[in-house]
Write a protein that binds this DNA or RNA. Sequence first.
RNA 1: GGGCGAUUAGCUCAGCGGUAGAGCACUGCCUUUACAAGGCAGGGGUCGUAGGUUCGAAACCUACAUCGCCCACCA
Length: 920
Amino acid sequence: MENPGIPKTYEPQKVEPYWADFWVQKGYFKPEKGSAKPSFVIVIPPPNVTGSLHMGHALNNTLQDVLIRWKKMDGFDALWVPGTDHGGIATQNVVEKLLKKEGTSRHELGREKFLERMWSWRKESGDTILMQLRRLGASLDWSRTRFTMDETCSRAVLEAFSRFYKKGWIYRGLRMVNWCVRCQTALSDIEVEFEERKDKLYHIRYPLGANDQYLIVATTRPETLLGDTAVAVHPDDPRYSPLKGKSVQLPIVNREIPIIFDSAVDPKFGTGVVKVTPAHDPADFDIGERHNLEQIAVIGFEGKMTAKALQYQMLSREECRKRILEDLEAQGLIEKIEDYPHSVGTCYRCGVIIEPLVSDQWFLKVEHMAQEAAQATRETLVQIFPSSWNGPYLHWLDNLRDWCISRQIWWGHRVPIWYCLNSKKDQGCPASELKSTHPASQTACPPVVSGTMPEKCAACGGVQWEQDPDVLDTWFSSALWPFSVLEWPQPSADLQKYYPTSVLVTGHEILYLWVARMVMFGLTFAPKGMDEPAQRIPYSHVFIHGIVRDKQGKKMSKSLGNVIDPLVMMDKFGTDALRFVLASQSVPGRDMQISDETFLSARNFANKIWNVSRFAFMNFPQGQALPTNAQSLRANQLELCDQWILSRLQKTIEAVRQSLNEYNLAQTARLLYQFLWSEFCDWYIELSKIRILDPTDSSQKRAVVATLDYVLTRLLMLVHPVMPFITEEIWRSRLALAGENRPQSLLEQPYPQLDPTLVEQDAESKMELFRFLIVAVRTIRSEMNVPPANKLNLILVVKDPAQAQLIQKHSRYLEHLCRAKQLQIVSSAQKPNKSAAVLVQDIELFIPLEGLIDFSKEKQRLEKELKHVEEDMERVSLRLSNPDFRANAPADEVERAQERMESSGLKKERLKEHLETLFA
RNA sequence: GGGCGAUUAGCUCAGCGGUAGAGCACUGCCUUUACAAGGCAGGGGUCGUAGGUUCGAAACCUACAUCGCCCACCA
């Protein structure tokens, strides 16, 4: 009985490394050279080199892998391009932490030494995550692996920058930016994360001249008072119109500041008076611009108070707030303090509160690109799945402000701008303290865009140069990713063949940060010869999946300690189980919650596939030409249950393909699970045993084995994209049984397609009758506690001769699955004494149980059944007696209700009769 | 402040106009040519609340409540 080809239990740990290696060695992940097939391309969202595979990566890459494997099997030239991201601030922070442990810092090392350190760190740990992806089974073409700071990608960055620069879209500007005082760099607007904080709203009195009158100003940031250069009210606010041209005395500083009128002020907020600090608040910055107010920077780039902050100089912003409040209190200038929950901007990399500061930065004009990108979506050239993301996506594009692309860190693409030092101007730019230190403000010659140091200054002939110290936002290179990985700007064959790509798979948290920007850059920089918008977009589909959360619905994070490590799950349950969990939880538009228990049923599912295969293989004759194809299948005398399972398989194939097309992988997983477990294993396998065990009829055995093999192999193909390891292992055993020992992959097999000639609606409904009959008998057996050893006699009263014939023909189904010893089919009969009875469709079924059971139990069972029927009849008759229902409902619906009423009526009568005769 | 999503069995979630579903958990029975990580059967839900549309609503609409997320210069 032991099968030589396949061990008793599936041990993922033993087979997974073999296959992960096999696929790569045999080149299954490479696209076919010179293939005429249509291409299907995905570029990976590059994980940061800092990373180790977490559940989010596992999800993201499992979904992509499912699509790639599916398309590859389905006749596409599939390519999935791997790579990693240098991860700007995040990665620099990691190495800076290491340096701190070593008692040094990047400033101590200096820029050059620090960058050496970064590169060596990236060299030793940058590939970790790629190796982990390999373990996940990701079918990435490793020969095309890219890194956002490798030569190819860096060339693309330089090219993009200079093209933007030539267009005049890149400019330097003194603007209010989001400054992280910990990371010591500017951030773009979307890199700020807002957090709800319980804060205070301080109402402060600003004296109005000499008498005791004052204006009350509400603020959450009293420390910025030191930099106030006005107070503002709404122009239409009648309370303050007499104050036109007046001024107030700024507390503590005792500076006189004007009262100005600006419609940005909300008269309903607080007292309708707002302090204006143009150097430390974005809204105030704008007001300041409109009213030509002075900017007084009282908070410096380190988050400490500047010399302008008088006696508070060198205090931290937090300490300063405390001291100011004490001083105001002492002077009686605090009106009141209220609790005030509001959201505070924090750095998305380190979580420290963002300081809005005026600083000189590089910006990219986005208006034109954003319009084009929005247009591409409005014209459905770029479609987002699920479409509910269209709204937020377009809203973001429509309201986009210029992108601050410069960062004051060292790890990244350095801004390729050079300044001629020959013509150094005098120090001390009037505009800003920061600006004066930047080389941009120190040269009279026009700066030069170049990847390397220019030779000679065209303006003055100077040869001394200094490169801009800033680096570009890490998302700048990410925005180029779909074509930089294909070697843009070089006119490569890959670019011609594989751009635009097919679909981008990602989580919604980087829809703006990354997805939108790739569309903008793609439209701008599409390869030569691709002029139509449909050719310029980087991908036509965006598949947005959910975020992995824990059991409580919280985001997984190290600090919360709720992380489920995918690598541990692979060890414990197998990679296929992990992949199945992630796919089965991936409902479009929804985040997913996973816990350890979720993995158990996936692991059990893998085991089920394994065991059903064992069963099948056990019964395959040696030397038979297998696997079965449609032709060899039809050569057999198929019977009802064969036709049924083949038809169900076709329906499943159709539904699975549909779900994949819709990116509804939860549906895909569910369909596979249900078909394999609830139909194939629970019913077909059990029915197949009848003929397999029948020693008298070998042609019948051939038919059932052929069907078994046909369904099982298609199932392996259907399941393979989701669970590649176990399906390969079973496939290998299958081939070995057929004497085929050449190693090959399921990836060479076609993804199953609907075969309409195998759809048998008639067989499906006939099988349904048998299933109902079998369940009915089993229910009675179970509820009456009839032990399995007791074989039952069944009496079936069947009026329809055709039906009688059908049941007679397949009476073995009933005998085997209900453990019946004798089947009596009659056209009419009185209920035998001492028997249980049940009605299935219009077939009456009696089970003589004299001496076997307690008939009061049967009475209870019948009464319960009767109650159900009566309740049901009541509902249906209510509907039928409603003239509006007959008038308005579709005819077939009315008919269905009538039929149901009739059959229920019949059932009710029979049940009553049975109850009456029960003890007769 | 604006928007999106969720609210269905004890738990995790499908379903999204025509008799309320799955997995896990629970109860009973079962070593039967795969699988006890299993088989068979069973119990358990007025589908968040209130209105409306409809012959018919878990599903569509409108409010409300609760939770979550996203966006916004929330002084």
